[in-house]
Structure formats: structure tokens, C-alpha cells
Simulated assay, not measured.
Amino acid sequence: MTSEIILFVNPTAGRGRGARAALPASRVLRNAGYRVRTVLGADADDAAARLRAALAEGPAAVLAVGGDGLAGLALQALAGTGTPLGLIAVGTGNDFARTLGLPVRDPAAAARLAVSLLQGPGPRPLDLGQVGERWFGTVLACGFDSRVNDRGNRMRLPAGRFKYDLAIVAELAAFRPVPFKLTLDDGPVMALDATLIAVGNGTSYGGGLRMCAEARLDDGLFDVAVVGGVSRAELVRVFPRVYRGTHLSHPAVTVHRARTVTVEAPDTTGYADGEPLGVLPLTARCVPGAVLMLAP
């Protein structure tokens, strides 16, 4: 183990905030006595390969400078390695950082917290979700929300979050409950029509949608939130409550806890940490203590 810290940077995160955030974070780390090495790549695959190569030199920690997408990319390299991961959250959603109680869009504060944890209590072992060989830290989402993502990703204009607002409106116009099959651990297959199913390792996704508001990152279990079939009008009425997590008391919402979850549905993509995992069926398992996180 060395005194080197790797800044794993997405220069385009948050419309350029990633590149700008690396400077104050680096300054804090150097002032604390660490050597700083910056790793970035031409694309996701190149960045991940460069990070894995850098890990072979035994850094003290990796700080991912970007949003949930970059944090998810870092998890692919760091899960199970014993190298601590911290987040300099400067993306659009920053759900993983919010769940962990980390500073958001304040790179100097996030770097100072990482230093204090490295020099004090140390990192925390936290759970991750795993689908095949892919790891995720926040929520595996499928149903209405993943179809909004699908539509938004197909739209070239407008740019930014407004594109997804338009995608929500378009999906609401075409909305029908999805016929799901859900299996929890070794239980029976449950057939149900639902608006969406969210498999939460963390509490939120989509920039603060607290769909799995009571999920914990250290209990070895997923919180599986099932929103049953509701009308368009009811979905519009209840949707704002998701930002506060108060939707869990709605009669159409049920929450289960399980270590392994299989979700099936026709023509439905699963998304986790803001990235597509693949077309359902997908099986996710909760892996206790899969990553060491620099979090309070």
C-alpha cells in the first residue's frame, strides 16, 4: 500500500464539472500529503482498463470524480479488491453519494472527508448488487422508469434532463401495467401486473427518486419495491411522493426483502446505476461487504 490516491475522472460529467472538480480535489489530497494520479480514458472500456492497471500498483484509495455512471464503472474494477473507493460526486443525479451521505457538487469537501476517513476510522465494508458479472450500488429498476430511460436514450433532442421529462410524458400517454414474474430467494414465482419493480441496494435513483427509501447498504438484503398497476392519473398524483419516500405507505406499493431477486417481463430493460444491464429476465444477488467505501 502506498500514499498514492487515484482520481478516476469523467471529464464530461455534469456538463464539464468532472474536469473542473478534479483540480480542487487534487489540491486537498496533495495538501494532506498524498501523491495524486489521474486516470481517465477515451471511453468507458478504456477508462476501466486503465483503472485496473493502476490498481496493480496498490494505491491507498480511488476517488471517482463524476456521477453515478462513473461510480458504477469504478465498482466494476474495485469490488472485491480491498482498495477503498470514495466519491467526488459532481454528476447529474449523484444518487450513490446521496445514499452514502457524502457531499454533492462540493469536490473540496468530498476530498477532505475522504482524507479524514483514510486517516481516521477507515473505509466501511458495504453491500453491492450483482447481475452476472456486473456490480451496482444503487437500484436495479425495471418497468415504467426503465421504459422512460429507453425512450430518452433514443431521443437526440432536447439535451439534458428536459429530454427525460418529455420521455415521461410520452410514456405516460402509452402507459399500461407490465406483466411481471418475480422470484424472491427460493420462494415461488409470483405473477403480477405492476407499474415498476425496483431492486434497491441503495435508496434512490434517477436524481433523488427514493423508491427504496428504507434500504440499507450493510444489511445483506435488497429492498424490493413493487408498485402495482395504477391508473395514469394515480401515477401522476403519487409520483411527487417518491422524492420524499412517502410513497411506501400507498396501498399499491409493497416492499419485500431478499438476498436474490429474479425479475421477468416482456420487452423490458433493466437499468442500474443509470446504465442498462440488459433485457429481462435478470437475476440480482446482494453480496455483503463487496466493496470498501470511504463513507461516514
Rank of each mutant, 00 (worst) to 15 (best):
A77F: 03
L87T: 07
T83F: 04
G274A: 11
R147S: 04
F180S: 06
P188W: 02
G93A: 15
G86S: 09
T260S: 15
G72N: 12
L282I: 01
F144Q: 07
A22N: 03
P188G: 14
A213Y: 08
W135T: 08
P121N: 08
P121S: 14
D165P: 00
L117H: 06
L126C: 13
D106I: 06
L192A: 09
A213H: 10
V189G: 01
G80A: 03
A79E: 09
V189Y: 03
T254F: 01
R151S: 00
L182E: 09
L277P: 05
G69D: 08
G58Y: 00
D267Q: 13
Y271K: 04
G278Q: 04
G18S: 04
L292I: 02
A21D: 01
Y271V: 07
T195N: 05
G132K: 01
L102N: 09
R210G: 09
A21N: 00
G137C: 07
T246K: 13
L23F: 08
A53S: 14
T92M: 02
R161M: 12
E57F: 12
M190I: 14
F8G: 06
E275T: 01
G289Y: 01
R216Q: 14
F8S: 05
F162Y: 14
I6M: 10
D219S: 02
R35L: 12
R210E: 10
D43Y: 11
R154P: 01
V236L: 15
G93L: 00
V169H: 02
P281V: 07
G14S: 05
T38C: 15
Q76R: 11
N149Q: 13
R112V: 01
G120E: 02
P266M: 10
A56W: 02
G16C: 13
I5K: 08
P276A: 02
L196G: 06
L63H: 05
G129S: 03
V255M: 05
Y243S: 08
A252V: 09
L140Y: 09
A284Q: 08
A225H: 00
A141T: 15
R259L: 11
M211K: 03
I6R: 04
A272C: 10
P179S: 14
D185Y: 11
R244C: 10
S231D: 12
L102T: 06
G228H: 08
G120A: 00
D150M: 00
P288S: 10
P177E: 08
V189S: 13
G120N: 02
A60R: 15
G122I: 07
L184E: 10
A74T: 07
D46Q: 11
R151T: 11
S146R: 01
G91R: 09
A108M: 00
R35D: 14
L128S: 07
A44Y: 00
G132L: 02
R232Y: 00
G220P: 11
L87V: 03
G93D: 11
L51M: 12
D273R: 07
R52K: 14
L75P: 03
A77C: 14
S3D: 15
V279R: 15
M293A: 14
V253L: 12
R216Y: 02
S116I: 03
Q130L: 15
A258V: 05
A110R: 00
L85W: 00
G229R: 10
P103C: 13
G16Q: 08
F136G: 13
L40N: 10
T269K: 05
T83N: 03
D165V: 13
C212M: 04
I5D: 12
D273P: 12
R237N: 06
K181N: 13
R17Y: 11
N94D: 14
I5R: 10
L140S: 03
L196I: 02
